[in-house]
Amino acid sequence: MSKNNEIDKVSGVETTGHTWDGIKELNNPAPRWWLIVFYITVIWSIGYWVVYPAWPTLSGDGERGGTQGTMGWTQYDQLKEQQAEIRARKSAYLERFENASFAEIRSDEELYAFAVAGGAAAFKDNCATCHGTGGAGSAGYPNLNDDDWLWGGDVESIHETIRVGIRSPHEETRLSEMPPFGDMLSGEEIADVADHVLALSGRAEDSEAGAQVFADNCASCHGDNGLGDSALGAPNLADAIWFYGSEKGDIMSQVRKPKHGVMPTWEARLDANTIRQLAIYVHSLGGGEE
């Protein structure tokens, strides 16, 4: 800047000589204290480079591919530390949880809260994809909130279902297979039996022919009154809850060529405690049986 710059009359400050439409720029340098702080931060940052991992290196050797810093600090380690901390905090309950029976857990306030909280988290990670975040399911995916259970609604049964899955590759998997009656029954018979099934919950006039078809073909699994059997995985046909739809057409289609859902086994994927937590959580959703 030249020395001959004009001094602004109002502020007594030198101008830079830059003029735009008659507006002159004042030469107000940044305050010294500000500059000093700025320089200190610059120097401080060098310390960061030394102490913490900072610069990427082109060598790419090792897992980190950069300068490592004298402290050897990494975010990975920090994450591991924090996870270890959480595990340590959990372990206080885990041991008690592991050794307690379902009945004991369900009468112990602390263990129950631990199970429901852990189960809720595991549910959202693993189960919500099919059953929904609220466990309300959808057509073909059972609602876990209601009181209708294909394979039993007490904690032990729920636990078993989660552990072995349904029609899964697990050796002990829950397995039921309704045959496709489309090959065995005529269209008229199927319509009749559908009427009878609707009549079980009082939604249609009963058909005598349908009742006969039902007794001959269906009652062996679903029971004489269509109440189902959770040991066989046979659904209750007399209640208000329908898995694949409640209309006559839905029922006929399910008789003709039944759909069979699959639930994976979780034994190999989740540890025993998580499965137990999940069982208690699902049981707590409201439909759990004793």
């Binding site: 309300a136 909130n145 209640d239 809850i241 409201g286």
Partner: peptide
């Protein structure tokens, strides 16, 4: 009241809210 599920239909046709 629960938002998810909003309500639950029970096997006897009654309704449950959480």
């Amino acid at each position: 009241y629960d938002r998810n599920p909003l309500f639950v239909k029970l096997s006897d046709g009654r309704i449950r809210n959480g």
